[in-house]
Simulated assay, not measured.
Amino acid sequence: MRLILLGPPGAGKGTQSKRLMQRYDIPQLSTGDMLRAAVAAGTPIGLKAKAVMDAGQLVSDDIVIGIVSDRVEEPDARRGFILDGFPRTVAQAEALDRMLNGKGLALDAVIELKVDQAGLVDRILTRAAETKARGEAVRADDDPEVFKTRLAAYNRDTAVVAPYYQARGQLTGIDGSKPIDEVTGEIIRVLEKVDA
């Protein structure tokens, strides 16, 4: 099962990814985690990324795709994977398609968690309050101002990825504002149709 979860920050992608990882025994591939792992491992692509990051520059799409390409070949990703937070641009989506095609692989599903963005800030404030109440550390990106900046960046850069997959007939939208269990159930129904 190879899938992409799309949606603005706070839509529940991380929560749903955890549930899907357990259900399908597949890893969630975070480009940030993969980048750090490649740098730490000293892989050829990791060394390239380190040089770019050490110079204070953003890692290019080619390097990110190279890291994803290496990661999907690891044993735990052979049964599939979840991409969350990638691709962030149409250029990355196109490069991802080319890379997967070159490996004889294809995406099984692209799921967009649709939420009312006006309500997202309230959702984040609630999440931060619940985290504090449990005595846990609040995520830095749960600060309302930081969150608004992330949401603006998503709308500017990443929201264009959904129409790319829509035009290819690969996108399924799900109401991410429903209760978590209902959202999980809807995602599983979509994936069961693909797997049938």
Rank of each mutant, 00 (worst) to 15 (best):
V110Q: 05
D76T: 11
L107N: 12
R127L: 08
K132I: 06
R79T: 04
I67Q: 07
L125W: 05
F81Q: 01
A137N: 14
I124L: 11
D116Y: 13
L83K: 07
K132Q: 14
D70K: 09
A137R: 15
A91W: 03
S69H: 03
T131H: 03
V121R: 06
V115P: 00
I124D: 12
L120S: 04
L105K: 05
D70Y: 03
A95F: 08
R139D: 14
D97E: 14
D143K: 12
F86W: 11
L96F: 02
A140Y: 07
V138K: 11
D97Q: 10
D84S: 13
A137M: 13
E136C: 04
L83V: 14
L100K: 07
E74D: 13
D97I: 05
K114C: 10
D76H: 07
A77D: 02
L113N: 04
S69W: 03
R79A: 15
D122L: 02
R139K: 07
V68D: 13
M99W: 06
A91N: 12
M99H: 02
A137P: 06
V68E: 06
R123M: 10
E130T: 12
D143F: 01
V110P: 07
G102H: 03
I82R: 01
K114V: 15
L120K: 02
A133M: 14
K132L: 11
T131V: 10
A140F: 05
D143E: 15
E94V: 09
T126Q: 15
A91K: 07
L96V: 08
R139A: 14
K103C: 09
L125D: 12
D70W: 00
A109P: 02
E130D: 15
D122H: 05
E94F: 00
A93P: 00
D141V: 01
D76G: 05
L113D: 03
A133E: 11
V90D: 08
D84H: 07
D108F: 08
D108K: 09
R127Q: 03
D84L: 10
Q92L: 01
L113H: 10
P75A: 04
L107A: 08
A140C: 00
I124V: 15
G104S: 13
Q92P: 06
V115A: 06
L83Q: 03
L96N: 07
D116M: 02
G119I: 12
L105E: 14
R71S: 14
D76Y: 09
L83F: 09
T89E: 04
V121I: 12
V138S: 15
L120I: 04
L107T: 04
D142R: 13
M99G: 00
K114F: 11
R139M: 03
A137H: 08
G102I: 01
F86V: 11
V110D: 02
K114D: 13
A109Y: 13
D141G: 06
D141W: 10
D97M: 07
P75W: 05
A128P: 06
D76Q: 10
A128Q: 09
L120W: 11
V110L: 02
A106F: 08
R123Q: 06
G102W: 01
I111Y: 04
I82L: 11
I67C: 10
